[in-house]
Simulated assay, not measured.
Amino acid sequence: MKANIVFEMAKDGGCSCYMLEEVPDFGLLGYGNTPQEAKADMLQAYEEIKELLIAEGKSPAELEFVYHYDMKSFFEYFDFLNVSKVAERAGINPSLMRKYTSGVANAGEGQYLKLQKAIHSIAHELATANF
């Protein structure tokens, strides 16, 4: 069963992630100083809930997580990506992209679609690269 997980960076610099769907027995949330910490917190809760359900004689659902990021949490999580270079590839002004990732400005749906297309292109190039 697919579970959509949304990451959001807070104004205080912390991060949270939560499950969009309602799945019986699972109401997953995660918190941390970084998206990595929030994800680890949520996955730990998932494993603990599964253990409790098994102890109760239940068969917990196996969830396949699909992660959704806002721009700030995306570039925080994938901190090895150069924001300006990704912006150029997406056809977004690098200065504007830095404002998006710092939380100074908010991107519209069109900008997110450009970014998603560029990220998928990068992922494809990486997947087909060989040494």
Rank of each mutant, 00 (worst) to 15 (best):
M1F: 12
A3Q: 02
N4Y: 12
V6L: 07
V6G: 03
M9K: 06
A10M: 12
K11G: 01
G13D: 12
G14N: 14
G14R: 08
S16G: 13
C17R: 00
C17F: 00
Y18Q: 04
M19C: 14
M19S: 04
L20M: 13
L20K: 10
E21R: 03
E21S: 04
E21C: 08
E22V: 10
V23T: 09
V23F: 09
P24S: 13
F26L: 02
F26Y: 10
G27E: 15
L28C: 02
G32A: 10
N33R: 11
P35S: 09
A38L: 10
K39P: 03
D41A: 04
Q44S: 10
Q44M: 14
Y46L: 11
E47W: 03
E47C: 09
I49L: 11
I49W: 04
K50W: 02
K50G: 06
E51Q: 09
E51H: 06
L52I: 14
I54R: 14
A55K: 13
E56Q: 11
E56K: 07
K58E: 15
A61N: 11
L63V: 04
L63R: 02
V66Y: 14
V66M: 05
Y67V: 04
Y67H: 13
H68V: 04
Y69R: 06
D70E: 15
F75W: 02
E76A: 13
F78K: 09
F78G: 01
F78D: 13
F78Y: 15
F80N: 03
L81W: 11
K85N: 07
V86S: 03
V86F: 03
R89D: 02
A90Q: 02
A90W: 01
G91K: 12
S95D: 00
L96Q: 08
Y100Q: 04
Y100N: 00
T101A: 05
T101K: 03
S102F: 02
A105R: 13
N106H: 10
A107H: 07
G110M: 09
Q111G: 02
Q111I: 03
Y112H: 14
K114M: 09
L115R: 00
K117D: 15
A118T: 05
H120R: 14
H120F: 10
S121F: 05
A123R: 09
A123D: 15
A123W: 05
E125I: 11
L126W: 13
A127K: 15
A129D: 12
N130K: 13
N130R: 10
N130I: 11
